[in-house]
C-alpha cells in the first residue's frame, strides 16, 4: 500500500494548505509521526495531540485527532493533567525547541522526573521561526540569528542529555535527512511505557537557513547530514571525530513504572489498607 494514502486519514485536509514555508522540515517530522501511529494502529479517538506555540505547534490543527493547541512552553503541563485524568488516552506533545527548552524547560524536566507516559516530540530547528528567526537555547554556538547577528555566544543544550539526566525513560534523536530512521524511533517512542523524548532535528530554511548562508532546504539537509553521526558508529571513531557532531540514535530505553500506573496502584492499595497518615 502507498504509505502516504495510509496516513491521509489522519489529516484534516480541509485545513490545508499549512502555514509552513516550502522546504520546512515540520511536514517531514509530522509525516514520520503519522506513519508510526499508523503502524501501531493507535485508535484515532484515543489519541490526544497537545502543542504549544510556534511553527511546529500549528501541526495540531492539521491532524485529525483530539487536538489541543495550548500556550507557549506549557503543552507538557497541560498534557500532564490530561494523562493523569484519563490514563487510557495516548497523549502526544508536539513542541518546538524554544517551546520545550526555553520557556517550557521546567515542565520538561519535571515530566521526565515523574516518568509520566507522555510522548514528547521536539521539532528542533535551532531557531524561533514563528517570530522571525531569533536564537533559541538549541541554536548552535556561533550560528547567526536576528538576536545574535554576530553569532550566538551561548552554548546550546543537548536535549537528550537533559532528558536522560532528568529521568526520562526513553530518549532518542533522529533527523529529517533520515526519515526512515526517524519514523522507527517514533514507533519506539510511541510504544514506550513511560516518558519518551524524541529530539527531531529539522530544518527551517526560511530563517535559520537564510541567516546561516544556506538558501535551500536541500542545502540544509546536506549540512545536517554532514554534522550527524549515528550512535552505532561513534564507538569506532576517535573522540575528535565525534566532537561537535549531532549524534542520532536511541540513547536510553529503560523499563520503570509509569507515573499514572504507579499512582493508581498506590491509591488502590491506600483505599484497601486505609490511609498511612
Amino acid at each position: 500500500m502507498n504509505r502516504s494514502t495510509g496516513i491521509a486519514k489522519y489529516l484534516r485536509l480541509d485545513r490545508y494548505p499549512t502555514i509552513w514555508c516550502a522546504g520546512c522540515g515540520n511536514g517531514q517530522v509530522v509525516g514520520a509521526l503519522l506513519r508510526a501511529i499508523d503502524t501501531l494502529e493507535l485508535p484515532q479517538d484515543k489519541v490526544v495531540i497537545v502543542s504549544g506555540i510556534g511553527c511546529s505547534a500549528r501541526a495540531s490543527g492539521y491532524l485529525d485527532f483530539n487536538t489541543f493547541h495550548t500556550t507557549h512552553g506549557r503543552p507538557v503541563a497541560f498534557a500532564t493533567g490530561i494523562k493523569l485524568a484519563n490514563p487510557e488516552l495516548h497523549v502526544l506533545v508536539l513542541s518546538g525547541d524554544g517551546d520545550t527548552t526555553a520557556i517550557g524547560g521546567n515542565h520538561f524536566i519535571h515530566a521526565a522526573r515523574r516518568n509520566i507516559g507522555l510522548k514528547l516530540f521536539i521539532f528542533n530547528n535551532g531557531i524561533y521561526g514563528m517570530t522571525g528567526g531569533q536564537c533559541s537555547p538549541l541554536t548552535a554556538h556561533a550560528c547567526s540569528a536576528t538576536t545574535a547577528p554576530n553569532g550566538n555566544m551561548d552554548t546550546p543544550f543537548d536535549i537528550c542529555e537533559l532528558g536522560k539526566a532528568a529521568g526520562a525513560t526513553f530518549v532518542a534523536r533522529g533527523a529529517t535527512y533520515s526519515p526512515v530512521r526517524l519514523e522507527a524511533m517514533m514507533t519506539d517512542a510511541l510504544r514506550h511505557d513511560g516518558f519518551a523524548v524524541l529530539d527531531c532535528v529539522t530544518q527551517c530554511p526560511t530563517y535559520f537557513g537564510r541567516m546561516n548562508k544556506m538558501s535551500s532546504a536541500a542545502e540544509m539537509l546536506q549540512w545536517q547530514k554532514e554534522r550527524t553521526i549515528p550512535l552505532e558508529k561513534t564507538a569506532l571513531l576517535p573522540p575528535h571525530a565525534v566532537k561537535d557532531k549531532i549524534i542520532t540514535g536511541v540513547f536510553k530505553s529503560e523499563s520503570k513504572p509509569e507515573y499514572t500506573a504507579l499512582y493508581r496502584n498506590f491509591h488502590r492499595q491506600l483505599r484497601k489498607d486505609g490511609p498511612h497518615v
Binding site: 489541543f68 506549557r74 503541563a77 497541560f78 498534557a79 500532564t80 493533567g81 485524568a85 521546567n106
Partner: peptide
C-alpha cells in the same frame, strides 16, 4: 506541580479530559 503556571495548565488539561 513544579509551579503555579503548570498547576493551572494541568487543571485545564484535566478538565478538558
Amino acid at each position: 506541580m513544579e509551579d503555579e503556571i503548570s498547576s493551572i495548565a494541568a487543571c485545564i488539561g484535566a478538565s478538558l479530559a
